[in-house]
Design a protein around this nucleic acid. Structure first.
Lengths: 193, 193
DNA sequence: TTGACAAAACTAATCTGATTAGATAAAATA
DNA sequence: TATTTTATCTAATCAGATTAGTTTTGTCAA
């Protein structure tokens, strides 16, 4: 019997396809092994456990999102950059609902790797924000508020929680617009202190 | 052997305590049955399945949150009401992290009950917002943006995703402040149209 | 008060999926 | 070519959800 030649990347790619197609809760070793043409215990040669696989998938997702958001910020600054980055975030997460779900488990097992997984993304945001000359404290507040909005918005879209027919994109853009106005406020507060 | 006399409410209360204490992922029928002094198959007299129990717990949580948020809005209006409601939301969810986790599954099994679970809460928000005379469309946008921020903020706090030492409450209040400014903007836009 | 019925709880068994142990064979390396 | 490594396998174990079928308890009408 010839070896299939699995690698972590092949397995992760497959796992991502599964979760995006049938949902994160349906990712079992059996389903994954079947898709790869292998028996489930064989996967233990590449991952220590199912939860290990989840962690790897989570890191994989954050890296991809980071890349997309960075791309979106290239050649732009201030409001334009932020709008573009937010749109990239929304697009990526809507394309990868299952993966996004798993990415949420980030930080449940804190480690160097999990910190590294989002620090690149946050650093990118920080660079763009530096153009606004916020006070240090307000920069932290601002990042938190943006992250919360993005996180929550996608979460609610994903769970179909907006029962209304009003456009998903429109509300998103209104939200980003509101946050950008808030940024200006913080600029002022900074100057006042 | 005397009967213990379980009821749905007793079971739900117990389940809530478990998830808030050891996390939603550790709620098994065995753990729950042990806590109740009963064998796990006995729980099937009250719930059809574990996922049935999850659904009931989810509804239970939303009802409690709804109550708390409504309480917070009594005797207040406009910005004061909203600030108070947001604070109540934050307080409740921080007290019930495990329960909040399960509440997130709302809408994964859409039904009359799940819609009813949040419609009361949303109606309360709508009532408070009515004082702002927003256009119909902007009211929808606004509610979505508020919900997203709240949802995402708690989620990130819960997952310990704010690596920074800046106060959790401060950032939250800054966020609410930004959204309230956005409300004013929408008021203007409404008048302009 | 008693007999019948419904419901609550039990034990024993089944099923599924994760995980482990130990064997085998393909690939890599010396 | 001989040896070592390791990807994969089969078989077995384990945990937890669920089902089947039984016993017991409480309730309620005759």
């Amino acid at each position: 019997m010839s070896r299939i030649g699995l690698t972590k990347d092949i397995i992760l790619q497959s796992a991502m396809e599964i979760v995006d197609k049938i949902g994160a809760e349906n990712l079992t070793l059996k389903v994954l092994a079947d898709k790869l043409g292998v028996r489930s215990p064989s996967l233990y040669n590449h991952f220590n456990s199912l939860s290990d696989l989840h962690t790897a998938l989570m890191l994989y997702g954050w890296k991809q999102l980071e890349y997309r958001v960075m791309q979106a910020a290239i050649g732009k600054s201030k409001d334009d950059a932020i709008k573009s980055m937010c749109a990239a975030y929304l697009n990526f997460t809507l394309e990868h609902l299952g993966l996004f779900n798993i990415m949420q488990s980030y930080n449940q097992h804190i480690s160097q790797e999990t910190i590294a997984a989002t620090s690149g993304l946050i650093e990118t945001i920080r660079q763009v924000l530096s153009a606004y000359n916020l006070s240090e404290k307000y920069e932290v507040h601002t990042i938190r508020v943006f992250r919360s909005f993005l996180q929550g918005y996608v979460y609610l879209v994903q769970h179909d929680s907006f029962g209304n027919s009003v456009s998903i994109r429109d509300s998103f853009n209104v939200g980003v617009g509101i946050l950008l106005k808030g940024l200006k406020e913080n600029e002022n507060i900074k100057l006042g202190k």
